[in-house]
């Protein structure tokens, strides 16, 4: 991929992804209900939910929509960068 293509395709997609995340989270469009697995296990089957587990690397920032947006944006960038690193290491160098 040419550098132009990176600027023309990758960066705009990442910016749009982060913008969509921000709109969805700040616009309160995200469901706070448990997901299907959690609902079936903890609400329907009344299995006790484990407590005291690892709450994530951003737990120290606290909670709230802005924290969610920042964490989501960082996650998008981390996923992109790790994807680039991992797959570049496995790619053949010549066409």
């Amino acid at each position: 991929m040419e550098r132009d293509e990176f600027v023309r395709f990758v960066i705009p997609v990442v910016i749009v992804l982060i913008a969509i995340l921000a709109v969805v989270i700040l616009g309160n469009l995200v469901s706070s209900n448990p997901d299907g697995f959690e609902w079936a296990l903890f609400e329907f089957a009344h299995v006790s939910e484990p407590t005291g587990g690892f709450e994530g690397i951003w737990a120290f920032l606290g909670e709230g929509p802005l924290v969610e947006v920042v964490a989501g944006a960082l996650g998008v960038i981390i996923a992109l960068m790790l994807g680039l690193l991992l797959f570049r290491a496995m790619a053949r160098k010549e066409r």
Binding site: M1, F9, A79, L80, G83, L84, F87, A91, R92
Partner: peptide, 11 residues
């Protein structure tokens, strides 16, 4: 994997 496709996979 062709190196040119790597950024698409990152996306």
């Amino acid at each position: 994997l062709d190196e040119r496709t790597v950024p698409y996979i990152g996306v």
